[in-house]
Design a binder for these strands. Structure first.
Length: 277
DNA sequence: CGGTTACCCTGGATGC
DNA sequence: TGCATCCAGGGTAACC
């Protein structure tokens, strides 16, 4: 579910609740989500551990435990998310963080159970895992580095932007928003962009993601919410995603919804006038 | 090897 | 109301 802005919003919400806090207990309710490590290791190292840091790599949440208790990595994927201060017990809890002094609870829930949980012994192990499956973070990649990575594939620009090994953090919503702002058609070849288009694309990635973070991400239906249960504000002002047949905010041409090669069933929204082939 | 598809899950919306 | 179908923001394994 969440892309980079939603995961960043989760992390910012978790920090005040977790940083420096001691875990009385880490309760694993669904061991099948654990991809690396085991429920026993998570419980053993979580018990009594202090949370040293909560951060993000691409779409992954990274929790560092003090005193060599290891690193917990959570990939929320489509429907994973955290709850703080929820009065009633939510559905589909997969992990419960029981905090000590004062006692409090942080829930990690995942309706569809597509998300993954991993425990690594140390930062180096976690770093290896990250580098195996992720390219540079979308907020940190440089313009020339982006150009170089896009030139290495024969695919279209949209599936390439969504490939986490090329750059980490962009999914289906923000790929469409970024391409609209950069005025690039989603079916253009990733390696065929002009210098000017690459400049616009690099700038759009940064600006769209920063704007979305400032608005606490994108919410619709029963999907992503902030850790406090609030909806993100980005989809109230976005350019194309979910706006089929509505007028483009730049030129008033109706937004098109299509399916494109390389992206199985996912929808793509774009403006046929602003985004030419 | 690079690119494309099937599939992992569940719940809500829609259509008959 | 009941049942079937479709759809969803992600990612990986298997296939061509």
């Amino acid at each position: 579910m969440p892309e980079l802005p939603e995961v960043e919003t989760m992390v910012r919400g978790l920090r005040p609740a977790l940083l420096g806090r001691k875990l009385r207990r880490l309760e694993v309710l669904d061991p099948s989500l654990i991809q690396v490590g085991s429920a026993a290791e998570l419980s053993r190292h979580g018990r009594g551990a202090t949370v040293l840091d909560v951060g993000r790599r691409g779409k992954w949440v990274v929790m560092t435990l003090a005193d060599s208790r290891g690193i917990i990595v959570i990939q929320p994927r489509m429907t994973g998310g955290f709850w703080l201060l929820k009065p009633e017990r939510p559905d589909h809890i997969r992990l419960t963080f029981h905090l000590d002094k004062p006692r409090a609870i942080v829930w990690y829930c995942d309706t569809r159970r597509l998300g993954k949980i991993a425990w690594y012994r140390d930062a180096q192990d976690a770093e290896c895992a990250f580098e195996r499956s992720q390219g540079p973070d979308a907020l940190e990649i440089g313009r020339d580095q982006l150009a170089e990575r896009l030139s290495r594939t024969g695919r279209g620009i949209k599936p390439t932007l969504m490939d986490q090994k090329v750059l980490a953090g962009i999914g289906n919503i923000y790929a469409d928003e970024v391409l609209h702002q950069a005025r690039i058609h989603p079916e253009r070849g990733a390696r065929n962009l002009s210098t000017v288009e690459l400049d616009r694309l690099h700038r759009a990635i940064s600006e769209i993601l920063q704007t979305a973070i400032a608005l606490e991400g994108s919410s619709f239906d029963a999907g992503y919410r902030t850790v406090l249960g609030l909806e993100g504000g980005f989809l109230a002002q976005n350019a194309v995603y979910g706006r089929e047949n509505l007028p483009c905010r730049s030129c008033s041409t109706p937004i098109l919804k299509t399916k494109i090669l390389g992206l199985i069933g996912r929808p793509t929204y774009y403006c046929p006038r602003c985004q030419t082939r």
